[in-house]
């Protein structure tokens, strides 16, 4: 290597390092906030989960009783089974709905401006209160609600439908209402990056519409589907208020049981339950993320 080439390489290296140093400084505030308000709190949860407690106070120490109590409880199993069922149904519905909506917006709306407008129409409710959106189903689904009234007056039914409110049904309706946007946005992003010429290339090769969907669109939307699935599943698994209000108290979730623990000051018990939930979710998310390199999908590096 000539002297000048060595010099150029050295300068290049130095520039490289100066970039990563400024990057480090720029990332520091984010790292600080997340360490203080995510890492440290989670460590606190783990710490408290091995503390003892009595009726009045939490006593620092080390015990695995809390875990034993949570894990041996039949309630825990039934809570997880309930949440897995609700999460699975919600996931399936939001996936189909989100995929259809994103596909429509990306590939069927001719004007880009209109597509953005319709996309925003889907997004706006996300910026309003979840609790308000949840309770807005009450006047529709109740025994005297609009849906029952409409069905009764049209003569489709003769008795009000009871399963509409305070049931699995109303819980899932609320979940779909609240969380479909988390499916739409990532799938919309993934689909927006598909070159429309691929449809013609596929047709040119003799593929039917269904084959194009299966062999071209689905694989290229995979990253969005994976990301959306992670959002929806973790949001449902972490819910406590929808399940409480919309089931009328007949269902409980893993987290709503924690809320009850906390309200009776059983902090260590709740903490143990939280740690178990975090482990379950971490395994689940790690499993799903293996399907796709999320970082490569999201971060545009030079």
């Amino acid at each position: 290597m000539s002297a000048s080439a060595t010099l150029v390489a050295a300068v290049g290296r130095r520039r490289e390092r100066s970039w990563s140093l400024s990057s480090l400084l720029l990332a520091l505030p984010l790292a600080a906030v997340l360490v203080c308000f995510v890492v440290a709190p989670l460590i606190s949860v783990v710490a408290v989960s091995v503390f003892r407690y009595d009726n009045f106070a939490v006593i620092p120490g080390f015990t695995l009783e809390n875990y034993a109590s949570v894990l041996s409880s039949r309630l825990t199993l039934s809570l997880y089974l309930t949440m897995i069922r609700l999460a699975a149904i919600t996931w399936a519905v939001t996936l189909v709905l989100g995929f259809c909506v994103a596909y429509f917006l990306v590939f069927h709306v001719r004007s880009k401006l209109i597509a953005i407008g319709l996309f925003l129409a889907c997004t706006v409710p996300f910026w309003t209160s979840n609790i308000i959106r949840m309770i807005s189903w009450l006047p529709l689904l109740g025994r005297q609600g609009i849906i029952n009234q409409a069905l009764l007056t049209t003569g489709v039914i003769h008795q009000p439908l009871g399963f509409l409110l305070y049931s699995d049904f109303s819980v899932i309706v609320s979940y779909v209402h609240l969380f479909t946007i988390f499916m739409i946005v990532p799938i919309f992003n993934a689909m927006s990056r598909i070159d429309p010429a691929l449809f013609e290339a596929s047709r040119d090769a003799g593929a039917s519409r269904w084959q194009t969907m299966r062999l071209v669109v689905l694989p290229l939307s995979k990253s969005g589907i994976v990301l959306g699935s992670v959002f929806v599943i973790t949001l449902v698994m972490g819910d406590f208020y929808v399940v409480k209000v919309m089931s009328g108290g007949s269902l409980a979730s893993v987290v709503s049981a924690m809320v009850d623990d906390i309200s009776t000051l059983l902090f260590p018990h709740a903490a143990a339950s939280a740690v178990i939930l975090l482990v379950v979710l971490t395994l689940l998310v790690a499993g799903i993320m293996r399907l796709v390199d999320i970082r490569r999908e999201l971060v545009a590096e030079r």
């Binding site: 970039w19 990563s20 140093l21 400024s22 990057s23 480090l24 400084l25 720029l26 990332a27 984010l30 790292a31 997340l34 360490v35 995510v38 890492v39 989670l42 949860v45 992670v230 959002f231 973790t234 698994m237 972490g238 406590f240 987290v255 924690m258 809320v259 939280a274 939930l277 975090l278 979710l281 971490t282 998310v285 999320i294 970082r295 971060v299 545009a300 590096e301 030079r302």
Partner: peptide, 26 residues
């Protein structure tokens, strides 16, 4: 910062993902 890789960028990224998917109440 994330336009370039920096030491710990992967860890920070996964921390971001973790705080996004961790149950809020927990």
């Amino acid at each position: 910062a994330f336009r370039a890789r920096f030491p710990g960028s992967n860890w920070l990224f996964y921390l971001v993902v973790a705080s996004l998917v961790a149950p809020g109440y927990v």
